[in-house]
Simulated scan of single mutants.
Amino acid sequence: MPGRDLPSPLAVLGLTDRQERLYRALLRVPAMTPATAAELLGTSVGSSAFADAVDDLMTRGLVLRAVDDLVAAPPERALARLVSDEHHRLQAQREQLAAVRGLLPALEAEHRLTRHARGENVQLQAIRSHEVVPTLEALSLETAGELRWFRPDQWRIAEGRLADRWVAELLREGRRSRAVYPARVLEDAPEVLRRRADMGEHVRVLGTVPGRLAIVGDVAALVPTRFDLADDRVLVVRQSALVQSLTLLFESLWERALVVPGLTDDLVGPAESARRLLLDQLARGAKDEQIARTLGLSLRTVRRRVADLMDELDASSRFEAGVEAVRRGWI
């Protein structure tokens, strides 16, 4: 239909097809009279459509007035600024969406709990830490469902090593297992991460992990009596709504957690995996503050490691570091 604005390649910046056509025409000439510009837009100088289109371009800094004529602002400055502004807007929007996603487990839990009859007994059983592995083994016989884990520090306790052997047996039988570790495991116990990955477990890392958690299919979950305190007691939860809520919590953090590049590559050591994880964050355009939160590091440590990485790659900018890392096959 004549006169109808269609999406333009610059629509992501808020420009219509007409506005992009005018701006590109202005780029090809030193200056343009309003009458010529209006003719290009298929309208008249005195029309509100022309005034709105030109005023919007001037507000965005893309078009300037030179006496009575219109001239284009240099794109390397004007468009670069608009792209930067749009990038920051989208980043803020992504953070807001991430915050909403983080609320989903709690909202879903509220919804599920209200669907159960009032007065339904919540099935909880308290056991001691030495009973954890035998309990998990018994629960695994009740379902063929996958295993889900938060493993913030299990490599430091005997029960964690016993669980490794039992999980290895299930994985050999074709059972699926997923685990989220704190990013510090890459420095504290990289061999644990590599061992579980070699067994066939899907592992990811997160800056911080709230506490120990084991979920066996949809049958039961094992949680500490307190996430914030070390305790020998563990709760076995069988109430379906609570198990589903804990599963939703796991899935929300699993989605945020990061795959460790090169983890299953025998030629890649722990230090190299940590370096590739940092490179992966840089390649995503993450800022130092975001990387620090994601990897559970201090801002100073992140900046030092980025500087060391750029020195190693002989790069003067992060963009150059990314290009050189790709050339070397690091990412």
Rank of each mutant, 00 (worst) to 15 (best):
L141T: 03
D153F: 09
Q154V: 03
L124T: 13
G160Q: 11
V167C: 06
V132H: 06
G145F: 05
L170G: 13
F150N: 02
A179T: 10
R115V: 01
V122L: 14
R161C: 01
A179F: 00
A163E: 15
G119V: 03
E120S: 09
A179M: 02
L171A: 12
L124C: 11
A138P: 03
G160I: 00
L124V: 11
G160N: 09
V133R: 08
H130F: 04
R172L: 15
S177C: 10
L162R: 15
S129V: 13
S140H: 05
R178M: 04
G145R: 06
L124S: 05
L136N: 02
V167R: 05
D164Y: 14
L136M: 07
G160S: 03
V132R: 05
V132K: 03
A163S: 12
R172D: 12
A163C: 11
R165N: 10
R148Q: 01
N121E: 08
W166H: 15
Q125D: 15
R128K: 10
R175W: 04
E173W: 00
S177M: 11
G174Y: 03
E159P: 13
R176G: 01
A163G: 12
P152S: 06
L141C: 04
E131S: 08
G119Q: 01
R172W: 02
A117H: 06
Q125P: 05
A158T: 04
N121W: 10
T143D: 01
Q123W: 11
S140K: 08
A144M: 07
E137L: 06
G145T: 09
L147N: 00
D164G: 04
E146A: 12
Q125V: 13
R128Q: 11
Q125C: 07
D153E: 12
H116L: 07
L171M: 12
A179V: 15
V167P: 03
V133P: 12
E142W: 04
A117F: 02
L139Y: 10
G160F: 05
W166P: 07
L139A: 06
R165H: 14
